[in-house]
Computed example of a mutant assay.
Amino acid sequence: MSAVRHRYAALLRGIAPSGRNMTNDKLRGVFEGLGFEDVASVLASGNIVFRSGETDVPALERRVEAALASELGLSSRTIIRGHPELRALLDSDPFPGLTHGRGTYLTATFLKDATPPTVPVPGQSDALTQFVRYDPAARVVLAVIDTSDPGRASRFMASLEKACGRDITTRSWLTVQRIVRKLES
């Protein structure tokens, strides 16, 4: 292991604050048990920031997934991004002039691997869903959803899963901003 401690964010799929084994304290405990440092939660939806000397991100993801399964019985997919990737994504300003809200729900869907979506993202030409772009450096699909239709977001997420597979997790743009602020604090 390297003496340099890298800052990472683990984005856990399928974490619900109401799940008894999904509480922030239990999730942080798993990360601390793996020997990671400066472990902290961001909101109550499966966002954990930490430091590690390890640089093999796929190996980190596998370690976290195995520990979540063995210690908490969770089969959560784990997607890890380094601070530089997330900082660059924020600095790229993918939603210029837009504010997160009901009519402009700004989303970032992170893909586990580096394979970009091979088909056009469903909803790209839909008046209530706008595909912004795929960012290959952060491996993320950026989109704007008008949530005035109550089922719009869930239908869009289902279409993304169909196009990209199940190794994805979506965060609001506000959450991504909070994660980066936590990584920098």
Rank of each mutant, 00 (worst) to 15 (best):
G73A: 07
L12V: 10
A16L: 09
G29P: 06
T175E: 08
G53M: 07
F110P: 10
G101Q: 07
P117N: 04
F95D: 04
R51V: 06
A44V: 02
I15M: 09
A143S: 15
I79M: 04
T118D: 15
Q177F: 00
V121K: 07
V180K: 05
D149Y: 05
P120W: 06
Y105F: 13
R87N: 03
G33N: 06
V144M: 04
S18A: 14
I80H: 02
A66N: 10
P117K: 02
I168L: 12
A69F: 09
R87C: 01
L11F: 14
S159Y: 00
E184R: 11
L111I: 08
L106F: 01
R133G: 05
V144L: 01
R166Q: 13
V144I: 08
G82L: 02
A88D: 13
V141Y: 00
A127E: 14
R63N: 08
T78A: 11
A114S: 15
T175V: 13
R139C: 12
G73Y: 04
V180Q: 05
I80Y: 06
K162C: 03
T78R: 00
A88W: 02
P94G: 05
K112M: 09
T147R: 15
R133W: 03
R171N: 11
A40E: 15
G123P: 10
E65R: 10
S76F: 03
P117D: 06
E61G: 06
L27W: 08
R62Y: 00
G19D: 14
T129G: 01
S52Q: 09
L68F: 03
